[in-house]
C-alpha cells in the first residue's frame, strides 16, 4: 500500500482527474444550461466530437491552440445551431434529432479523419502551461492543479460565472422560466424561442470546447469516436447536479479521477485491467443513487416544444 500514496501517484491521479474531468465538466455545464431552458440536448456527444475534430484541425493547421479552442467552440455551436433550428424553432423531437446529430458527427469526423490524417496520424506538441506564482510550488497539488494550461482556469471560471448567472441575473431567471413555465416567460415579453436557442448554442459551444480540450490538451491527436461516451456522461452529470454548476464541478473531477486512476496505478506499479477500472465511476454513481435515492429534479417543460397559445 505504501507505494500507492507516494507523491508521484497522487500527482498523477489529480493531474489525470483534471485532464479527464474537464471535458466532462464543460459538456455537463452546457447540458445544464440547455436543460434549465427546457431542451434535452442528446446531441452533446456529436457536438463534442465536432469540437474535438475542429479544434485539432485548426490547432494543427495554424499552430495556435487558442484558434483551435475557438474553432472547437464554433464547431460545437454550429451543430447546436442545427438543433436550435429543428428542435427549438420547428419543434421536432429532441431525442431523434439529438441522436441523428451524434450519429452524423461520428460519421463525418471519421470520414474526414480517414481522408486527411489516416496515413500520417499527426500529433500536436504539448500545450504550454501557465504556472500560478506561489501556488504552483506547493507539493502534489501544485503541479497537478496550479501548473496547467490557461484554458483549465478559464473553464473553472466558466462554472463560477454560470453559477452566478443562474442565481443572480435576469438571464438566469429567464432560463429557468423557459424550462419551468415557458408560457409565463412569453407573457412577460421574453421570447421563449430566443432564450432556448441561446441556451442550446451556448451548450454546443461549451461541449465543442470540451471536445477541443480532449483532442488538443488531453490526447494531442484526433482519433475517430474519441469522445467515447463523454457526451452521455456529461448529460448524466448535468442531471445528477440538479441545476447546481458547482456540484457539476465536483462530479466531473470525481468521474475524471475514476477514468484516470488506471494511469496513476500504473505509475504506482499496480496492474489492474482497464475495463475493471472503467466500471468505477458508473458503479459509484449507481451506488450513490441506490443509497440516497434522490428524486430527479428536472424542469417540468423539459423536452416539450413551446407553442404560443397552445394549452
Amino acid at each position: 500500500m505504501s507505494a500507492l500514496f507516494t507523491e508521484a501517484f497522487l500527482t498523477a491521479l489529480i493531474l489525470g482527474a483534471v485532464t479527464a474531468g474537464l471535458p466532462l465538466m464543460l459538456a455537463g455545464l452546457g447540458e445544464q444550461i440547455s436543460e434549465k431552458a427546457g431542451v434535452l440536448n442528446i446531441g452533446l456527444e456529436g457536438m463534442m466530437l465536432i469540437g474535438a475534430y475542429g479544434g485539432f484541425l485548426v490547432a494543427y493547421g495554424s499552430g495556435s491552440i487558442w484558434l483551435g479552442f475557438l474553432a472547437g467552440a464554433v464547431g460545437g455551436a454550429a451543430v447546436a445551431a442545427v438543433m436550435a433550428v429543428l428542435c427549438v424553432g420547428l419543434g421536432l423531437n429532441q431525442i431523434v434529432i439529438g441522436i441523428a446529430l451524434t450519429l452524423g458527427a461520428e460519421g463525418m469526423t471519421a470520414l474526414q479523419h480517414h481522408f486527411q490524417f489516416a496515413q500520417s496520424y499527426p500529433r500536436l506538441p504539448a500545450v504550454p502551461t501557465l504556472p500560478i506564482p506561489g501556488l504552483s510550488s506547493l507539493p502534489v497539488i501544485g503541479p497537478a492543479l496550479f501548473d496547467r494550461p490557461a484554458i483549465v482556469y478559464l473553464a473553472v471560471a466558466a462554472v463560477a460565472v454560470t453559477s452566478w448567472v443562474f442565481r443572480r441575473t435576469h438571464l438566469g431567471l429567464a432560463l429557468q422560466a423557459a424550462g419551468d413555465k415557458p408560457a409565463a416567460l412569453d407573457a412577460a415579453g421574453v421570447g421563449v424561442v430566443a432564450i432556448r436557442s441561446a441556451a442550446v448554442l451556448t451548450a454546443g459551444a461549451l461541449a465543442g470546447l470540451g471536445g477541443a480540450f480532449m483532442s488538443e490538451v488531453g490526447a494531442g491527436i484526433f482519433v475517430p469516436f474519441m469522445t467515447n461516451g463523454a457526451g452521455f456522461i456529461g448529460i448524466v452529470l448535468a442531471m445528477l447536479a440538479r441545476g447546481h454548476p458547482l456540484w457539476l464541478l465536483c462530479g466531473a473531477v470525481l468521474f475524471g479521477a475514476c477514468l484516470s486512476i488506471t494511469t496513476a496505478l500504473q505509475v504506482a506499479g499496480v496492474d489492474i485491467p482497464t475495463d475493471v477500472i472503467q466500471m468505477l465511476p458508473f458503479a459509484t454513481v449507481l451506488l450513490i443513487l441506490i443509497l440516497f435515492g434522490r428524486r430527479a429534479a428536472l424542469p417540468p417543460a423539459l423536452g416539450v416544444h413551446y407553442v404560443r397559445g397552445a394549452r
Partner: peptide, 15 residues
C-alpha cells in the same frame, strides 16, 4: 462510417 452520415441526414429529413 459514411452510413452513419446517411442515416443522420435521413433521420433529419424524415423529421
Amino acid at each position: 462510417h459514411f452510413t452513419l452520415v446517411v442515416v443522420a441526414i435521413l433521420l433529419i429529413m424524415l423529421g
